[in-house]
Each structure stands twice: as structure tokens, then as C-alpha cells.
Design a protein around this nucleic acid. Structure first.
Length: 365
DNA sequence: GCGGAGATGGACC
DNA sequence: CTAACGGGTCCATCTCCGC
């Protein structure tokens, strides 16, 4: 590879983001385990951990585990449990993203706490460390938050590198070092390899990214299909060409909530969905959008996910129509299934930008 | 064969 | 002893259907 032409891609990741924001707001928390929780409202402690700081992680408390389990692991420890305050974190995130964007030639935000920066036009690898330190410094000075940065010749490498040293870390994988860097790492470090894929790879004897890199591509294709196999083969060999670019408009808006108890009672469920429809519609109208599809998501007692969607005859943002369609989908679902509903969600998609006064098409359906 | 619609699975934060 | 268990978004793939 021609090193002088290699792209310089960074992944900047806000460290234990929600919990760090809470620490910043209330410095007396620093040093104590801080656990930011999503309470479902079903019982006192039902819900999961969104983020925990490092003091909490020492006890095995991390994103995704039930709050009850987190409390068990922190029993007798002076820990702080905080309900998550999404709007607040979003405001902080927006300000940090401005700083990051200012430091990039091309920018791509991924979620609330991460972004890719293509900085190839403002530096090469010899200046990458200096630039990365400057960006970390900017965020620290302006927002009093630490971030971890990974640098590589593509997004996959940058992402993995960012995870090597945390928090407040910096890892640079120079051109030519990519393969040795990747080879010893477990496959699940690779972007797009989650629990299910790890299981399937393990049954093929693939444990490390190096195993994957040297695995027969044809056999890989038999198991994963051609597209995924090609991706796995290239990425594990340090090759990934996807460019860093701003994400387009959002393609769907949804809200999901947990019911107070498992039920199949239409009326009880509709009480919840009506509220959710109003919230979704408010967001849609705020963005000046109209949608052409409405759907429901049902999470069953046994945590299975079922979805139903319906296309409308034309674009709308009428909450009454949305509620009506949701009710129909729900009724039909309840007829088809005999399982109790645990969580219920609504979503809209298929957006069209609402230019002038577009006809609202509320009459039929 | 190609599209839209609809359902599912997987991934990630 | 095990199980416990949020919310939001995106993407790929598959099937079915009409054209």
C-alpha cells in the first residue's frame, strides 16, 4: 500500500458517556460507582443499566444488565443509581459533535456518543497523534469530557483501535501495521460481528480475526452468503473502503414502552399506544415530515419481537389516523397470536419532506 | 427480473 | 439455583405479489 495516500480515519468515542456527564454535573460522584439506568416503571427496580462508570464496571456492572443484578453486585458498596436523562445528554452530545466536526474534513456521527472523522486532508499519519491530542484537548477544555480516539486507514481499524485504551485513550494503527494489529484480536471486535455471528464462526474454528483472515473465502460464503463473506474477508485483512460521510435524514421514528403488566387486553394496550403515537407525531411534525407507513412492535412475554406495518395511501402526519391504523394492526395481531404482550411500540417510516400544504389524506383507510 | 410491501434477524449504542 | 431484562435506529435478507 502506498502509505502516502492512505486515508487517516479517526473514531472518537465519548467515554462511559451518560455516567461521565452525570459526574461532570455533580463532581461529588467522582470515585463512586455511578450507574445510569433505564427504569421501565414496571416495578421499583425493573429496567436495565444504560451506562456505568469505571468504578462500577470493576464490580461487573455494565450496559445492558438488569438493574436488580447491578444492585446485587454493588451490595454494600456506596454506589449511585441515576435515572437516565436523555434530553440532557443529547444537548451535551450536540455540543461535542460540533467540536469534532470542526476538526474533520468529513464527519459521520454514529449514535449519541461516537463519530468518525476523516482527517486525511489536514494530516498524514506522521501528524495523526498531534491532531488527535488536539481534538481530545478541545473537548476537554470546552466540555470537560474525556474521549478515546482510534486512528487507522479505515473505519473498521479506527473503531477497533478506539476500544484498545479506555478511558481517555489514543491508539494509532499505522498503514502497514493493520494485519498484525488485527490478527490476535477476537472476532467479535470486528464491526458487524455480534453474538450470533461469533457462535457460527466458533463452530468453524474461527476465534481470532487472524483465523478469519486466512479462512477459505468460498467456505465462508457458504455459511454467511457472498456479501457478508466478502466483507469478513476484506475487513479481517485490514481492507475496508467505506467512506466517512454525514448520515442522511432519519428513516424511521419509533417509541416503545413497557406495559405495567403482561396483557392481551386491547384497551389497556391502546392506552399506551395512544400516548406513544402522540409523542411520535410530535417529533414528526417538529421535523416537518410526513410518513407513508405506520407500524407496531410487540415484545412478547417471552421477549420475542413481532412487527406489523401498513402502508398508507398517501403521506400524512395526522395523529388520529396514526392511532386508528395502530389500533387496527393491534386488533389483527391479537387475533393471530395468543401470547401475552410485555412491551409495545409504534413506529412511522417512509418519510416524505412536507413541502407546502400537502393533502393530509385522513379520510379513508 | 424488478419494484414495493411486509416480516424477521442481527447489530450497535 | 437461575433468572432477572430498555429503548432507539439501521441494515440486510427473504417472501410474496403484481407488473
Amino acid at each position: 500500500m502506498d502509505a502516502s495516500r492512505a486515508r487517516v480515519i479517526m473514531l472518537a468515542d465519548l467515554d462511559y458517556f451518560y455516567a461521565q456527564v452525570e459526574e461532570r454535573k455533580n463532581p461529588s460522584l467522582i470515585g463512586k460507582p455511578v450507574v445510569v439506568c433505564v427504569y421501565s416503571g414496571r416495578t421499583e427496580d425493573s429496567g436495565v443499566v444504560a451506562t456505568a462508570n469505571y468504578a462500577a464496571r470493576k464490580y461487573g456492572v455494565k450496559s445492558g444488565i438488569p438493574i436488580t443484578l447491578a444492585k446485587k453486585r454493588l451490595l454494600g458498596i456506596e454506589a449511585v443509581f441515576i435515572a437516565m436523562n436523555h434530553d440532557f445528554y443529547k444537548e451535551v452530545s450536540d455540543r461535542v459533535m460540533v467540536i469534532l466536526r470542526d476538526n474533520a474534513d468529513n464527519f459521520e456521527q454514529v449514535g449519541i456518543d461516537e463519530a468518525y472523522l476523516d482527517v486525511s486532508q489536514r494530516t498524514d499519519f506522521s501528524g495523526a497523534e498531534k491532531l488527535a491530542m488536539k481534538i481530545k484537548d478541545d473537548v476537554k477544555k470546552k466540555e470537560s469530557l474525556t474521549i478515546s480516539i482510534g486512528v487507522g486507514t479505515n473505519k473498521v481499524l479506527a473503531k477497533i483501535a478506539s476500544d484498545m485504551k479506555k478511558p481517555d485513550g489514543l491508539t494509532i494503527v499505522r498503514p502497514g501495521e493493520s494485519k498484525e494489529f488485527l490478527a490476535p484480536l477476537p472476532v467479535d471486535k470486528l464491526l458487524g460481528v455480534g453474538v450470533k455471528t461469533v457462535e457460527r464462526m466458533e463452530s468453524l474454528g474461527i476465534k481470532t480475526i487472524g483465523d478469519l483472515a486466512s479462512y477459505d473465502q468460498g467456505k465462508l460464503a457458504e455459511v454467511f452468503g457472498k456479501n457478508l463473506a466478502t466483507y469478513f474477508h476484506c475487513a479481517s485483512n485490514g481492507i475496508y473502503e467505506e467512506v466517512v460521510q454525514e448520515r442522511g435524514e432519519r428513516e424511521s421514528i419509533s417509541r416503545i414502552a413497557t406495559l405495567r403488566e403482561d396483557t392481551r387486553d386491547l384497551k389497556a394496550i391502546l392506552e399506551k399506544t395512544d400516548k406513544l403515537c402522540e409523542e411520535v407525531n410530535a417529533r414528526v411534525q417538529q421535523s416537518g415530515l410526513t410518513y407513508r407507513s405506520v407500524g407496531i412492535v410487540v415484545v412478547t412475554k417471552s421477549l420475542g419481537i413481532r412487527m406489523r406495518t401498513k402502508s398508507l395511501s398517501g403521506p400524512t402526519n395526522d395523529v388520529m389516523l396514526m392511532k386508528k391504523v395502530v389500533k387496527e394492526l393491534l386488533q389483527k395481531y391479537l387475533e393471530e397470536s395468543s401470547i401475552e404482550v410485555r412491551r409495545i411500540g409504534v413506529h412511522v417510516s417512509n418519510f416524505t419532506k412536507k413541502e407546502k400544504e400537502q393533502s393530509q389524506l385522513t379520510s379513508f383507510l
